[in-house]
């Protein structure tokens, strides 16, 4: 598969995992559940040059081209990650404007999914993202003794055809039963059983909007932005112009990840701030995760990163608990 291009996959870094470029398949660690940073970093890099300019030469602009002579293959993405990627696709590529930088990287990437069994922090059962039906080329379901592979694109199909000796197209009754058993086992492993509250979440958010639990969360929050960096569906960015040191007139415009949790996020000229309190910034984050993001429905995929990474334990589950719990 590496003949198709660079392979990226989960690797171990101390006791955590990261997506990194794989030189040999033995360094890949498919036992992982979640990486520190989500895969969005490969489509919407933390820092990205939009163009460079030369003020001297009539403001001539140059755009760095993506090398599309070889593909990137992302190996081992779990369903929540692919679902998050689909949400990012909707945000960046569909609608009135398509982001050409994201689009290039996305179109040049082959996605190979890989099944997983949840830990205590996973709750994709509650966000409807424990399975995925689009946005990948191949999806490999680990059935212990062998793999069931779902093919979802012609590119995926080509890979299968080129490696025919590895595949068996006949799916027997036994295979089907094994898959059913696997699905049931996976479903029984989720620790969080909120059921699907997405039907009422808009009203619950609305009715709870001024509830004091938000102020409490606001008091605890450190405005560190860890939640937005680690969330696979956060995509806010800032844009800055940078001048090259040494060469007068040369510079570039760069975008970099930004966070709605940072105090400056909604400040306009004259120092008017539309989101003064931490509580109001948290409400924005959670309304985008639970109610609607990019005019397109809730965006939380239940990956559990905010549960694992927020230093003061503010996360989707805690917010949902506050939103739904009856207090007497």
């Amino acid at each position: 598969m590496s003949t198709l291009g660079d392979v990226w996959g989960p690797t171990k870094k101390q006791d955590k995992y990261v997506f990194s470029k794989i030189n040999s398949f033995t360094t890949m660690n498919l036992d992982y559940l979640r990486t520190i940073l989500p895969i969005k970093k490969l489509f919407f890099p933390q820092k990205q040059e939009l163009f460079s300019f030369n003020l001297g030469e009539g403001n001539k602009k140059t755009i760095k081209a993506v090398d599309d002579s070889k593909h990137r293959i992302l190996f081992g993405l779990h369903p929540c990650e692919i679902n998050a990627l689909n949400i990012q696709d909707g945000f960046f590529m569909f609608g009135d404007y398509s982001d050409p930088y994201y689009e290039d990287l996305r179109n040049n990437t082959i996605v190979v999914g890989y099944s997983c069994l949840p830990d205590n922090n996973c709750f994709c059962n509650f966000t409807g993202t424990s399975d995925v039906d689009e946005g990948y080329d191949l999806f490999i379901n680990n059935l212990d003794d062998y793999y069931l592979v779902f093919v979802n694109s012609t590119t995926g199909n080509d890979i299968v055809i080129q490696n025919q000796e590895m595949f068996d197209e006949d799916i027997s009754k036994i295979d089907l039963n094994n898959y059913k058993k696997w699905v049931n086992k996976r479903n029984s492993m989720f620790k969080h059983e909120y059921g699907d509250i997405t039907n009422n979440i808009t009203k619950l958010m609305d009715l709870n909007y001024n509830d004091e639990f938000w102020d409490k969360l606001g008091e605890e929050c450190l405005s560190c932005g860890t939640c937005t960096i680690s969330c696979p569906t956060c995509s806010c960015y800032n844009v800055v112009d940078k001048l090259s040191v040494g060469t007068i007139g040369l510079g570039f415009r760069e975008r970099e990840w930004d966070s709605c949790q940072l105090p400056q996020f909604s400040v306009v000229a004259g120092n008017v701030d539309f989101r003064v309190t931490r509580a109001s910034r948290l409400k924005l984050y959670y309304s985008h995760k639970l109610v609607t993001y990019g005019n397109d429905g809730p965006s939380c995929v239940g990956c559990g990163r905010c549960i694992e990474q927020c230093p003061v334990d503010i996360n989707v589950l805690r917010v949902v608990k506050n939103l739904t719990e009856v207090d007497l």
Binding site: F91, F92, Y97, D99, S235, C236, Y237, N238, V239, R255, D258, C260, F265, S266, F274, L284, S287, H288, V291, T292, Y293, N295
Partner: peptide
């Protein structure tokens, strides 16, 4: 795309 002007949804 940049998210800065978001007001609720």
């Amino acid at each position: 795309k940049c998210g800065h002007c978001a007001i609720d949804g």
